[in-house]
């Protein structure tokens, strides 16, 4: 219930936070919204000596129009991202996924960057961020670097952010006019999905011109359903056309088996949810 004792610092700038990280290294843990970290500390699955709070760094909050992309500050809460008209207009898939993420109280605290840095394979933001081809801006002692989504997710709870770095911003390329849907399959309310599918499509008349499909909890990281994406291009947005492409959704995935379902069950779920998500994104749901 109560975390082990730790020292606490709440720096006012990214530079100060990086200095604290450099000083305490291995013994330190960053806290953003705390919605994943605090449960871990309370169960004593982790006991850092220092907790560095990013909550006082104003520059990490907010959403900026970057021209061809939206720049989402790492500390912007799920609630604020979900309500943002710019996100709705330019990256509808993100808005759709956030509607299904956790519950209202958790969305008021949990942050966009925190959820992505946490890299839970069942987390709801990885698949949309990957499907939209996002870039992750990471700052460290040596300056800032940009990591493409394909390289950001490394493994279960592991990202390309190294121990002396902080995720500052996520750049999501604009997908104006693309339809979007997030189909999440859960056993109980306000929880992580057994499998979820993030789909966004650009229509050309009655046909799908281009599609991006990201899968949640179908492996140790979010993955793109590449075979489905390729099969969807130029296909009429009909039940049959989409179902044939969706049948390929689990190709190349390596889903886990657990109490909620074994790997084969998840592969099946992925094809069903992909069909639904793509049809909905295409306005045929």
């Amino acid at each position: 219930m109560i975390p082990a004792a730790f020292e606490y610092v709440a720096p006012a700038s990214v530079e100060e936070a990086l200095a604290a990280l450099a000083e305490h290294g291995d013994d330190a843990k960053i806290i953003a919204g705390g919605q994943s970290l605090l449960p871990v500390l309370r169960m004593r699955l982790n006991a850092p000596e220092w907790v560095i709070d990013l909550g006082r760094i104003a520059s990490l909050r907010g959403i900026r129009d970057g021209g061809d992309h939206l720049a989402i500050g790492a500390m912007t809460t799920h609630h604020d991202v979900g309500q943002d008209p710019l996100v709705h207009e330019h990256a509808l898939l993100v808005s759709k996924a956030i509607t299904h993420l956790a519950d209202a109280q958790v969305r008021h605290r949990g942050t966009f960057g925190g959820a992505l840095a946490h890299a839970d394979p069942a987390g709801d933001l990885g698949a949309p961020a990957l499907a939209l081809g996002s870039t992750f801006v990471v700052q460290g002692p040596g300056g800032t670097r940009e990591v493409p989504a394909e390289e950001f997710f490394v493994d279960l709870f592991e990202t390309a952010i190294s121990e002396d770095e902080i995720l500052t911003e996520v750049r999501v390329p604009k997908h104006d006019g693309w339809g979007a849907a997030y189909e999440k399959f859960v056993r109980i309310a306000h929880q992580w999905p057994i499998v979820a599918v993030a789909a966004t499509v650009r229509m050309d008349g009655d046909a799908i011109a281009e599609a991006r499909v990201g899968l949640t909890n179908m492996g140790s990281t979010p993955v793109r359903a590449r075979a489905t994406e390729a099969a969807l291009s130029g296909v009429p947005a009909t039940e049959e056309g989409v179902a044939a492409a969706a049948a390929l959704a689990a190709e190349g995935t390596n889903p886990p088996s657990d109490l909620n379902g074994d790997a084969d069950y998840r592969r099946h779920l992925a094809t069903v949810l992909t069909r639904r998500a793509v049809l909905t994104a295409a306005g045929r749901g």
């Binding site: 709440a10 806290i31 705390g34 919605q35 449960p39 709070d53 008021h108």
Partner: peptide
């Protein structure tokens, strides 16, 4: 586990689960 919501309070006008926020925050 921060699931039940019984501890909900408002922090600067928004609902939060007070078992999942540090007093220092």
């Amino acid at each position: 586990t921060s699931n039940c919501g019984a501890c909900t309070v408002h922090l600067d006008g928004r609902s939060v689960k007070s078992c999942n926020v540090l007093a220092v925050q």
